[in-house]
Every structure is written in C-alpha cells, then in structure tokens.
Design a protein around this nucleic acid. Structure first.
Lengths: 329, 329
DNA sequence: CTGTTAGCGCGTTCAG
DNA sequence: CTGAACGCGCTAACAG
C-alpha cells in the first residue's frame, strides 16, 4: 500500500505538506501544491480514510435506521427510495452511510444502543419510522449523545433536526380534491396507527376539511393495515360517499372490499406507491418524494455534524392520480 | 473517550493484555481475563473499531453492490430482502456493510472503481444484478483485487464465489407444474434479458422441458420488461395454451394483456414478489428466499476474507401459488 | 503467561 | 510557507 509518506518523498516535500494539500489548507504555495498533486497522480495514491478518521477523530459515518415492520413494510418501494436518496447524498457529502433495521436494535436498552453505535464510530443517526411508543429511541434522542435527524416526527433540539412534509395540509388537499370531484358529503376516514406522529397531523387535516366543507366525518383506526381497512370498509363503506385512507395500502384494501361488495365509492390514498397503479382503475393519492426527503435528511445531518443547531425542515408533495398503464409505459 | 489504556491502568495490567482478552487470544490466565473484563464493565469501555482496523489492517468492511435499474427495480421487495439478509448476516459476522448502487459507479473505469473501494477500505464486494455486458465489473472480478461474491452469475476464481439457485431446474419445475395442470402443448416463453446470466439457464430449462414433454415452444425476449411482455402476449398469446414468463412482473404484463383480449390462458411467473398476489387471481411462481441468498453471500464473503478459495453455492427455492387474500391476511 | 515496544497512516501543533 | 515530531487507539511481534 502506498501512503502519504511515499507521496511526500516522491514530491520532495514533508508529510505534513501533503496532508495540507489533501485537506485543502490555504497556506501552501501553488508550486508545492502542484508538485504534490503530480506525485499523487503518478503514484495513484488513495488516502486511507481509516487512518484519517483515527487521527482527526471524525469518522464521517452515519446510520440510517429504518423501521419497515410497520406500515407497508417490504411490499413497496418506499424503503428503497429512502435508502437510495440517503446513499446518494451521503456520497455527495463524503460521508459513510450504514443501514440499520429496527429489528436489529429492538431488544436493546439505551445504554446498549449507545454502545452499539459508538463501537461503530457512528456520529449521527437518521431515523425513519419512529412512533410515539419507541421509548428507548426517544431517550436516545433526548440524551443528545448523537446527532439525529428524524423523518416524519416533530422532534427538534440542539442535536436533533426533523424533516417531513406537511401531512396536515397534504391530507387536507388530497381529500378535498377527491371529495369535490365526487360531490361527496359523508366521509369515512381510515386513519393510520394512533401512535404514529403523522397520524395525528393527518387527522387534524381531515377535521379541518370537515369543518370547511361541512362534511359528516367518521374516523376509524386502520392501523396502516390493509386487512383492517378492508374490514372497516365492509362495515361502514355502504353508507358513505367517499373513503379517504391514510395510506395507499389501506386504500387498496378498501377498494377491494368495495369491489367484493359490488358497490362503487371513490377512494383516495396517501404515499404514491407504484402498487397503487396496479390495482386501482384510478386513484388519487399524495406522492411524496422519498428520495428527496432522505437526501435532505443526510444534508441536514451534515449541517448538524459541522456545528449547526437542530431545526425543522418541510418538504413538498404532489397530488396525483395513478393508474396502470401510466406506470408501466 | 475512554481507551484501552485506561482499562489497562484500571485493571493493573499491560495494554497488550487487554488487547488479548478483547481479541480472544488463548494465552491469558483466567484470573487476569476476569480482572480485565471487570475493568471493561466498570469503565463502560467500547473498543474503537477504527483504531483496530488501522492497526490490524483489517477493516471488516464489505460493500453490497446492487443493480436495481434492470428488472423489477424499485417496485418490489426483492432489493429490500437482499439488503436485509446481508445486513443481518454481516452483523452476525461482525462485518461492516455499506450499500452501493450501480448508478453510483456506472461511469467509472476499472481503475476508478478500485480507487473508489480502496478509499473506503472495502475488502470485499457482493454483486447483485450483474449482467454479461458489465465489462468493467467483469474486469474487476478477474483482477482479483477484492474478494467478491456474485449473486446469480456463475463466476468463480480464487477470490470470487458465486451464490445462486438452480435457475434451470426452477424454471423447468414451475413450467412443468403449470403445463401439466392445464394440459397444455403450445407454450409461449417470455424470457429475460439476453445478456443476463439467469436468462440462459432458464431458457435451457424450458428447452429441456419442451423435449421431455414434447411441447411446441416459442421463445421471445421480454427483457424483464412488463410492457414488452404485454406486447408479446397481444402478438402471440391467442395461439398458445400457456404463457411462461421469466419474471413475475412480465407475468403480470402478460396477464393484463390477456384480460384486455378477453381470453384466458394460464400464466406463470418467477420470483415470488408480493405484487403478484395483488393482480392475479392465482398464479404459479418460483419463490426464492432472497434474504437467505444474500445472507449466504455474506457468509461466503467471510470465508473468502479469512482465506478460503472461491466456490459455487446453490440454494433452494419453492414452487408456490400466490393470491390476494393469502398475502394480506 | 505478561509486559515492552514499535508501528499502522494520517492530522496537527510549533519552530524555523 | 515548510518540515520535524508527536499522538490518535490499537495490534503484533518480541522479550522476559
């Protein structure tokens, strides 16, 4: 292996000088800089990130902590989108990203968790899929032992930022669109899990809308579960004009129930997963840009690590209508 | 930060002794081992993996290189399954796993690739989704600069292992099952991309079957593309008794085409993705255990790194019939 | 069985 | 602007 020492020798300068051009220090003459750059080229030198990390005490390593057990888990593209966006941005920021699943840390105490991350020299953690009853994680966040960016949860402190879309408004918008298109009055809202942060925001959006449009609103907990939504639809669907669901997967469950009941009711979802296009003839939904969300999270993490205070960040979304042929073509 | 030195002092032994108990060396007395363990507990010492890596020259870092642009890409759970299995096994083997997408290295030359991985102290690479025309990657494999495990491609050398299921036999089995169930004779086989390693294996399986059962076999390249399969079905479907597809997604494309043509033909797929259950009433397919495949790949990587020669590993599969309610319940 | 010592490759003072 | 020297936390011979 060829090291910084070899480069120094080859260029006829000191080791520290090479280190300086490597780390873009200002006080190096153009001439020496050029010499060093040449030597690096010629020798095909690649800086050893491990040595660098040890010496500088900065690993540049962050973890993407994903909860895929709840919600739609593995049958949609959401997780991959998050992952892709995070990796992409991490490479841009020259950070190292490792992926961790909730299932791997489920049984751990706060102390064990800290040890787990410390042992891996993790500086920051991005959390996706946090729910209110993940007590250990909440403790971890409050301890400020790591820089943390939470996706879809409103937690902010000096070491913690939050990244999400405005779920209240998004739910309001997509429901309003669907309701107005169908001239509906009696609404069944199948909500997400009650311990989820997004759930309460979305419910607020629905309540606001009900007031604004003078609707009859029935709210039932679908637990982000397709089967549950199916059952609720069998139970209440016939006496409602429209069914608004807090996730695409629940919308699919509702729609299949309606088909089996052989009645038509407009349904709308939330997320914009591809699966939606396969089962519905047409369905309104909110398309979130998951890639962009996690990319923003990584970017924010970078700021956190380099000293900025935590903050809340809102991103945009789109209202779309999904259908089969649009997807595969 | 508390280091090995502090532990040594606290336990009243030398630094190297601590290192020895940390790394499970045999020649340490039970008594000193106990003392050291106690000190570690009391101080809450966590070994610094970076320093360890620097000193031992073993990073224990491997990369999972995923190609999701071809095939079903982001709309199924395959990628997540692979990832999950790999992470799970990597943790077990105490290795560090980072995820890399093809899109991030697409434009790179072999030299740049080596630099890219070297700079990250990667010791081994697991490649998923390799096709025959990824020349740069093939060169990388042949160079033996890294330990490599290839999933679904038959490449083996002293630094390279291969992990896959027997695609020839699997294709044979699932097609045979479907054909016998429906008493079919004229078969349309919609194959995968011609430059894919699995494609030729599966085609072999079909040809063998055609001979064994005395079938009329028409093979057309569906490129693992849903739309393409749809087109081919419109073109040939009416004059065939059964349509065998090299992927679930193509099977879905075929099935939707049949529905639009308003004719019925049995269709079978390959992969066992959940989506399959949403669109078909019932469909035969081969369910691979992607989690197990990538876990095996990581395990094999561990062997490779610790000195074993490359080898070929075959895993099992299942023939299943998928349908909607089975999935959501 | 235990302790001493010399690096691993790099970042960072601090003289010059 | 440059270079010598020290240290990051740990591993691995080598003595004792």
């Amino acid at each position: 292996m060829i090291s910084i020492k070899d480069v120094a020798k080859h260029a006829g300068v000191a080791i520290s000088t090479v280190s300086k051009v490597l780390n873009q220090y200002p006080n190096v003459s153009d001439e020496t800089r050029k010499k060093v750059t040449m030597a690096i080229e010629e020798l095909g030198f690649v800086p050893n990130s491990i040595a660098s990390a040890l010496s500088s005490k900065q690993s540049g390593r962050i973890a993407l902590l994903m909860n895929l057990t709840t919600q739609t888990q593995a049958i949609d593209e959401i997780g991959m989108q998050y992952l892709h966006g995070a990796i992409w941005q991490a490479e841009k920021e020259k950070m190292d990203l490792i992926t961790v699943f909730f299932s791997m840390i489920k049984e751990k105490s706060v102390l064990e968790l800290k040890t787990y991350f410390k042992a891996q020299n993790i500086e920051g953690i991005i959390i996706y899929g946090l729910s209110k009853d993940d007590f250990v994680l909440h403790e971890l966040i409050l301890s400020k032992s790591f820089k943390i960016v939470v996706i879809d949860a409103p937690i902010v402190n000096s070491a913690t930022s939050s990244v999400w879309i405005d779920h209240r408004k998004a739910q309001y918008d997509i429901a309003k669109k669907t309701i107005l298109e169908n001239n509906a009055k009696r609404v069944l809202y199948i909500s997400g899990k009650e311990n989820g942060y997004v759930t309460e925001q979305r419910i607020k959006g629905m309540q606001e809308l009900a007031e604004d449009l003078d609707l009859t609103l029935l709210i039932r907990d679908g637990k982000f579960n397709e089967l549950e939504a199916r059952k609720l639809t069998f139970q209440y669907g016939a006496h409602k004009d429209v069914i608004v669901c807090a996730s695409d997967l629940m919308a699919i469950g509702a729609m299949n129930a309606l088909m089996e009941m052989d009645i038509f009711r407009p349904v709308c979802g939330f997320d914009g997963i591809t699966l939606m296009g396969y089962v519905g003839k047409q369905m309104n939904t909110v398309r979130q840009n998951f890639f962009a969300v996690s990319a923003s999270a990584v970017e924010e993490m970078h700021h956190l690590i380099t000293g900025r205070e935590g903050q809340e960040i809102f991103l945009g979304y789109e209202l779309v209508r999904m259908q089969y042929l649009d997807i595969i073509c």
